[in-house]
Design a protein around this nucleic acid. Structure first.
Lengths: 197, 197
DNA sequence: ACTCAAACGGACCGCCCGGTCAACTTGCTA
DNA sequence: TAGCAAGTTGACCGGGCGGTCCGTTTGAGT
């Protein structure tokens, strides 16, 4: 979580919390939503009870991990709003999003819906930043005019999912599919699209 | 299953088997791999024990459902090999694939790996048909030359996954993303791609 | 050094899952 | 219509899950 606790954590508790978040991130990356709390605790080297002392629910723990990622992406998106080349900035953002997601399939965003208010807030901040990035790229003529921020949000998740079907994929295979998808966003040779959501 | 049983099924057994496959397809579509055998049985109006009489394992039941879908796609792909416009044929195939998958997220193809030999065979038949479809579209100049059959196989799954993030998506939103992705396959404005798998 | 709230850990609980089984029912055949 | 194999059923089992609880340990203030 990003909220500052009223009283600072005890030294060992802070250490454990950090190890727990790291272990949870790795374990969720490896096994998706099916990762068990017991396995996460074992990987972090702490007892299962300690997990629930830090996060009252498995969903809360998941939300904390996700918020971390989303927060980082939001920061990057806001940074890139001042980059010189708007088209390159959007591509760089989508590359970063795909690259980080490689560790953590974002499909729980669908399942972990409004489980946690802080998560909802962080996510909508990310969404507005991405929309601004997209508008800027459209104004520069780098992508076709019928693309929305939501399109980018949805499509930036695709490369990792696509690659997850390949058993022994090289670690940067996702770049190939991001390349294809981003080419589909370009104005050249674009066909009219069905209505947006 | 497509294999003909040595002795024909009794009338009630055949009825139950049909209802079971239908229920399983619907339940897997609704809840993914987490659909429980008990729920499937209830939806089919039969006892849980009967499920395991027809399919010795939950994975076997899943495989039977998947084989059904894959088989239909393979037939379509082979049909489209003689269509007049190779580019339109490929697009039509990808549309059919996305449209049918809407009922059944294909992500279990990754998880249900080599669980069932018949599934593996059916799947590789589909793969060769798709590759032929792609080669034909490339020769006609309808898609860029650096696309492989595997690319199409992977990308045709993407629109549904992408749309699944949208809570109340209109039922044909996937067409929008298939449109973008297919535009990314076209020769116009294509950028060089990282190496294939 | 003493104290005690804070933090820890793992046995434990209830639940639900996939899969089994033996008693029961039913459709085919003669 | 009688007999029997084929089919059905739901109670039941072992196991793993998320979450609880309380006896124990530990770090920080004095």
């Amino acid at each position: 979580m990003t909220v500052t606790p009223e009283r600072p954590l005890r030294a060992d508790a802070a250490r454990n919390r950090y190890a727990l978040l790291k272990a949870a991130s790795e374990e969720f990356a490896a096994h998706g939503l099916d990762a068990s709390v017991a396995d996460i605790a074992r990987r972090a080297g702490i007892g299962k009870g300690t997990v629930f002392r830090h996060f009252s629910t498995k969903d809360d723990l998941l939300a904390a991990v996700v918020i971390d990622r989303i927060d980082g992406l939001g920061l990057l998106a806001r940074d890139l709003l001042t980059a010189p080349d708007p088209g390159a900035a959007l591509l760089e953002f989508m590359e970063a999003a795909a690259g980080r997601q490689r560790q953590l399939d974002l499909s729980f965003l669908r399942d972990a819906h409004s489980v946690n208010d802080l998560l909802d807030d962080t996510r909508s901040e990310l969404f507005t930043a991405i929309t601004a990035l997209v508008e800027r790229a459209k104004d520069a003529g780098a992508i076709r005019p019928d693309i929305t921020g939501m399109d980018v949000i949805l499509l930036m998740c695709a490369p990792n999912h696509v690659v997850s079907f390949v058993p022994d994929a090289p670690p940067d295979l996702w770049r190939r599919y991001l390349g294809i998808i981003f080419d589909g966003l370009r104005p050249e040779g674009a066909r009219p699209l069905p209505a947006a959501s």
